[in-house]
Design a protein around this nucleic acid. Sequence first.
DNA 1: TGCGACTCTAAACTTTGGTTTAGGATTTCT
DNA 2: AGAAATCCTAAACCAAAGTTTAGAGTCGCA
Lengths: 227, 227
Amino acid sequence: MRQSTDLGSRAAAAPNSHSCVVVIDDDEGFRESLGRLLRAVGVNPRLFASINDFVRSDPPDSPTCLVLDVRLPERSGLDFQRDLAAAGATLPIVFVTGHGDIPMSVQAMKAGAIEFLTKPFREQDLLDAISAGLARDRVRRQNDEVLSGVRARFQLLTARERVILARVAEGRLNKQIAGELGITETTVKVHRSNMMKKIGATSVPELCRIVDKLKLLKLLPENSKLA
Amino acid sequence: MRQSTDLGSRAAAAPNSHSCVVVIDDDEGFRESLGRLLRAVGVNPRLFASINDFVRSDPPDSPTCLVLDVRLPERSGLDFQRDLAAAGATLPIVFVTGHGDIPMSVQAMKAGAIEFLTKPFREQDLLDAISAGLARDRVRRQNDEVLSGVRARFQLLTARERVILARVAEGRLNKQIAGELGITETTVKVHRSNMMKKIGATSVPELCRIVDKLKLLKLLPENSKLA
DNA sequence: TGCGACTCTAAACTTTGGTTTAGGATTTCT
DNA sequence: AGAAATCCTAAACCAAAGTTTAGAGTCGCA
């Protein structure tokens, strides 16, 4: 039977060399055996006995997938999942547990877990889930990069330029903007020109796309008092 | 204990009068008791003994939530969920089962189920899930309405106008479009003007938003051969 | 106090967008 | 064959966008 992902496939030489699989489980035997399995398919896992051990370690700088036991000595895996979400970290999580129940699995999946496996499980199922998790994190990281770039350029804008940006993206004419802000059309044109250069847009549609990205992060206070 | 949703709350007189809760379960006793519960909180449920009974019935025209047993005589609830998704119907589903396991619940949640409850369950948990499902379907229906309107207007466009639409939304100048299509700028202006009227946009940003909605439905063939 | 950033303005100019009017050529359907 | 839709074009015109140059007023901060 063919597997549909790259992990565990002989054809994939080292497509995951720049990825990070974190295993957190208090059972050392399981941890080590999982470590061997992962190394066998070409990924270099980081093994931890507890969540705190992981939290204290260096944060990974490559696409990451967590393999997490639900029942852990300090915090439970589900609690940790909630904490991560509250902190804005959306790391993909594959839960693995020996003593799970349906409400647990449902809660985990509702909170965005990639997979919820019960021991014993088929190795390929875990590898597939990890592969999916890494793929998701890869996409998230790419989006984050783009977004942080846009956000940085937005920070370069003056208060006035931000207002102009919003109005232009709404489709208002220079004349209308000038009237609404109580300034002349020439001034609007100057601000607009400077804004477009700073934000890095060469056309209005391009500006719209940038604004859409910013809005996803709620960075624009919609209608600020600056108007 | 206070409930966080409208269902089962005394304050909600009839906020769900225009909604449809479909119960599919082969256990008549359970079906009827669930029906009484739902009527008690102000919703008028439709009860079915099998999936085929529901499929043969009139499709609901108001926000809908399915309450589905996983194990059913003909098709399993999970199979039905997959069939619905394949058919493009994204009805919210609340699974209810007496004989579930973790893989089942994980599969259901992965496929977008609202909730997966095991009998016996707390009534309020079910009501909360139904309420969440109805809310999701309400949002989906609103989006669908907007989208079908946009799609209908897009269908009014001629082939040429659709090309112009795409280029304008990309930020191309009339001069560039004319050059790329091998026609004069005047012609582009005429097509563009007609296109804007037909699609119902009064500004380029407005056009961009419309195009974004269309792209979500993959209606625009990106780079068509008409260029 | 003085520098720098921000905001605003005027005037003159070029480019682009948008509309109208008045056609010609082609295809499609009845 | 005739009507309708589509696609194309020209000329002329007005509105809007964008640029440049040059300068004035305000504010905060070193």
